[in-house]
Write a protein that binds this DNA or RNA. Structure first.
Lengths: 202, 202
DNA sequence: AATTATACGGAGGGTCCCTCCGTTTTCAAG
DNA sequence: CTTGAAAACGGAGGGACCCTCCGTATAATT
């Protein structure tokens, strides 16, 4: 009667699913406002569930981050494909990076959270790295094949640059500024080939 | 007799100075090991003083960070002058940035701490910004005057890029990697005039 | 030695973390 | 529809921290 591995799994309980959803919504809200160190008990309160329920669904703070962040990452990854089909190579690359900046602009608090999370459990890192690396890889190889970008740079590198640059801004015109920096970086990618000292390609 | 330069203010108490020093040493140790969220009570314990003493000397966690970090910053700022005298412009700029990377490599935990601190109190940000901006400004203007670097970039921007890029790495060959990224960025700076707006146009 | 400005230590009230377990709800078999 | 048990729920409770407050101790000055 004991182990029947393949069969007879009960349908997941409705309240469980509902609560999980509520928790995610509440958490997104709370973290967005209060930063990555906001109280989990506050999250539970806002979700209208007991603290025990929160911990059953998300055993660690990081698990909660992960669940929320995963969606964002998937969405950004999806954008890469779209751009690869609708835009010329270099432009696609640049636009994707801009989108990355913008995403982090909106989700700033969340991103800070991530820095912390990544420090500790590297599963999220593995996942998002994989997703985004793949997505960016497409754009990068495409641009490289078109001879618009140097060929010795891996998606991981560009990704690191993107996140790093995005993580900094504190001032008013934050987003604009970061985009400038990203563009400078992209220019650096472009310059790769032995560039004649004088020329400015018209 | 001895000196009374400005006012009849009492000499600071010896135990106060001693405790302040002990606290700084203990804090550096504890934070280095336990990250920016380590317990302040643990710091006090290790310093062998009461928790009240800690709070009197450093009213906030950030104040503690600031005190520790200030030294590092001053040191790095000093390096800029030295390089400006001993190296050719572009090379000086590049070397300084490399040194920046390396400093953060050693003090990684501390730097993470800083990201948090900066989020909250911006005094440290103001101070270190000022120091480093000044230092970097020298190098940048020099390189720009020599025509080796585009002229429309402010030290603040490059600084942000440096810190951002440095903040990311997680892997083995972290330092090498970041230095590569910094170099790519610097290449981007070098490209005299930005290319015509073939893309972008948000 | 006496005075007094300063600094010290740590108890105390509050929040948060996370576990544990008695109670409630949901599913599905009869 | 009943009913029993699997699955989920809520929240009390012990421990760690945070930070304030204030009576006590001590260094500088007279």
């Amino acid at each position: 009667m004991v182990t029947d591995p393949n069969k007879a799994t009960r349908k997941p309980r409705a309240d469980s699913l509902r609560n999980r959803e509520r928790l995610l919504a509440a958490a997104a809200e709370i973290f967005r406002a209060g930063g990555p160190e906001a109280s989990l008990e506050a999250v539970a309160r806002r979700a209208g569930v007991g603290i025990g329920t929160l911990y059953r669904h998300f055993p660690t703070r990081e698990a909660l981050f992960e669940a929320i962040y995963r969606r964002e990452v998937e969405q950004l990854a999806g954008l890469a494909e779209a751009l690869a089909k609708s835009e010329p190579p270099f432009r696609a690359l640049r636009l994707w990076l801009h989108a990355g900046v913008r995403l982090t602009a909106t989700k700033r608090g969340m991103l800070t959270a991530l820095t912390l999370a990544i420090d500790k459990s590297s599963e999220i890192y593995a996942f998002s790295s994989a997703q985004l690396t793949l997505a960016l890889g497409v754009l990068l190889r495409r641009a490289s094949a078109a001879g618009e970008v140097r060929g010795d740079v891996e998606p991981e590198d560009v990704l690191q640059a993107l996140v790093g640059l995005s993580l900094m801004g504190r001032q008013e015109d934050w987003e604009t500024n970061v985009i400038r920096l990203v563009d400078i970086f992209v220019d650096g990618l472009r310059a790769a080939a032995p560039l004649p000292a004088d020329a400015v390609a018209g």
